[in-house]
Amino acid sequence: MIKNAFKRALWVYHINTGGCNGCDIEIIAALTPRYDAERFGIKLVGSPRHADVLLVTGPVTAKMEDKLKRVYEQTPDPKVVIAVGNCGASTGVFHNSYSIRGPIDKIIPVDVYVPGCPPRPEAIIHGIAKAWEKLEGKK
């Protein structure tokens, strides 16, 4: 894993589909000095067209559904999708609401799930590492 890790930097695009921000701040915490995911070459990018990995949070609201699909289509292959947080994996606490179209895997294929509400930054980095393995295998 570590041997492969430095072959190529992993570019990550993050999309919030209606989560509560909890996961999103933990993703940023994972990138800032305490957890420092950037030292592994994991970098957040500003456009899905540059990304290898999609980090998706949130239960997918009605208004975000088609946008999530479009981001998925815009991401070049090979790509992996990570669902961060309980509400992305199962819609979590929002399960009985009318405006929820999720969970994420109902809309786009998901490769890695990171459970937790929100998951700790370490868990998010672990999820990305798993995605990495999958990506290396996919090529």
């Binding site: 957040l44 946008k67 981001v71």
Partner: peptide
């Protein structure tokens, strides 16, 4: 044309 959240940088939160 409406594109999801558009730019996501370390400052991101929800889409607007």
């Amino acid at each position: 044309v409406n594109i999801p959240i558009g730019p996501v940088h370390p400052a991101l939160k929800e889409p607007v």
